[in-house]
Design a protein around this nucleic acid. Structure first.
Lengths: 283, 283
DNA sequence: GCTTTTATTGTAATTTTTTTACAAGAACGC
DNA sequence: GCGTTCTTGTAAAAAAATTACAATAAAAGC
């Protein structure tokens, strides 16, 4: 049977493997990413052994042959893409940091996607769908996320607002009606002003949907807490991937609500699109 | 270049594929998990086509052959184990459209990453670095991108502003000095008001960096044009992935400028972080 | 509506790649 | 040191993928 973590099995077997097979193992561990693109001859050459030795190595680590081994390795690497180094250093060329920015973002998105709790999402969608008013609160980088979200939900014919000002948040919060929804967005999950606003929302009978890291004060305080754990390796500079993860989560919420709204919404969006056309350059 | 999300590419190509190739595509989409354990003969048999047709199909979806195809498929399935249908219908479950949203976003990001022109990016970074003032203009969904960008560059100690109001844009544009930079963000690349503002910026001697689709009016009008071709998803009329691509591109610009600024910036960011701490909840 | 042309698909041969069988050589025990 | 066992490589066979080409189907032209 195939082990879950192939590289783990390989390093575990290192001691029991024969000398030549160990050469293969070491090479595989050193550069697994390269191995999945190799043919058996290439790997044999790089590890300085013969081809049958490679096959024997594959069998020794529980695979059914070389192809099977490559497949298993590829799968593992795909699920933990953090094999390449992602920290941004000063000497990076443009090409390199461009790739790093995009790759870290992709990495974060996939991690968040897999860690999302679907029932929570469903609950959040239902709450938004049932609300008279939907508001988005966030500060700093999350303020931009809030405005983006407001724009999106506005297009879905939902009465929505976005506030990055604690005074406005508080004023608006106290005027909410039971069943109304506030989406509190925080990358740190520790913004005191946001926590204060959330408290007012709850006092007014509103539902607070939190978008914040697991276990953070915002997450704990929210009525419905969507956990977004985009741990930033390069937090030193600026928040990068986490706000993109927030945007993506909001996209999911928007689509969920859009689906609940059904076909009537399509017509509305069509008209909206037609209306926008007049603001556009013909070519 | 290998497509990031293979199944996505396959369903996209469904219409352009030949009849027999489509049979292969449909079978692969129906049961991708089985395919990765198959040899080419098996797949040919199941799809009721010949083996060369399978190879042709693999090439048609951007792979280098059958092995390459299987590897790419295996990698994708590893990161989304319960992969089923990709076609979007109204009946999509939460799980499905969550995946769909994240996957298309990832797909877009990787496509944009590979299509970015590095020299243009370098030119843009140099222009921003050399400017006294940097402003971001955008409407609608791009307005949120502009505000996010403003926030980011503000943290890099760059005098920056973001305007989503054409009047403010125009007023600000006329007050720019030669060498100042405006980043014009547009998903459609066809916003007339934005084109007007850009004209004023150029008259004032400012440099316009455009973030828009290739060949669009905004792209043609910009002094430095960064092409972002994020083919927008048909089914929903809300901009989804493209604005995330814009954000990522701006991240790249920010990091580029940050590097040019060098170590002094680090100190500044440290102080900034310390300042923010007081606004945060202790736990 | 028939002929010519082009595009699509499958058959068969070729090439590539992996695996097996076996023998040479090294390590170990006696 | 000799025989045994274990390890590794060579070479042949098997399996798999790919290419070349021909047959057929579809489309365009007359």
């Amino acid at each position: 049977m195939k082990p879950a973590r192939l590289t783990q099995t390989i390093s575990d077997s290192l001691t029991t493997l024969r000398k030549s097979e160990r050469k293969v193992a070491e090479f595989v561990l050193k550069d697994p990413l390269a191995v999945i693109r190799m043919r058996i001859v290439d790997l044999a050459q790089h590890a300085e052994v013969s081809e049958p030795t490679v096959v024997r190595f594959c069998r020794a680590v529980g695979c059914n042959g070389f192809q099977d081994f490559k497949l298993a390795l590829a799968q593992q690497l795909a699920s933990s893409p953090s094999y390449g180094q992602i920290a941004v250093t000063d000497q990076d060329s443009t090409r390199e940091y461009t790739h790093k920015v995009f790759d870290t973002t992709v990495d974060t998105l996939l991690k968040v996607r897999d860690s999302l709790d679907l029932e929570t999402l469903d609950a959040a969608i239902a709450a938004i769908y049932g609300a008279q008013r939907v508001e988005f609160y966030g500060f700093g980088a999350s303020a931009a996320v809030a405005f983006d979200a407001q724009h999106k939900f506005f297009r879905l014919q939902i009465t929505s607002a976005a506030y990055a000002d604690p005074h406005l948040q508080n004023m608006s919060a106290t005027s909410l009606h039971p069943g109304d929804v506030v989406i509190a967005i925080s990358q740190s999950g520790r913004s005191q002003a946001l926590l204060d606003s959330m408290e007012l929302v709850k006092q007014a009978g509103g539902i607070v949907i939190g978008l914040s890291p697991t276990g953070s004060p915002v997450a704990r305080s929210a009525s419905i807490s969507i956990h977004v754990d985009a741990k930033e390796d390069n937090q030193i500079y600026i928040p990068l991937s986490s706000r993109i993860a927030h945007l993506a989560v909001i996209d999911v919420l928007a689509i969920g609500v859009a689906q609940k709204k059904g076909p009537k919404l399509d017509e509305h969006l069509m008209r909206l699109k037609a209306g926008l056309a007049s603001l556009r350059s013909p070519v």
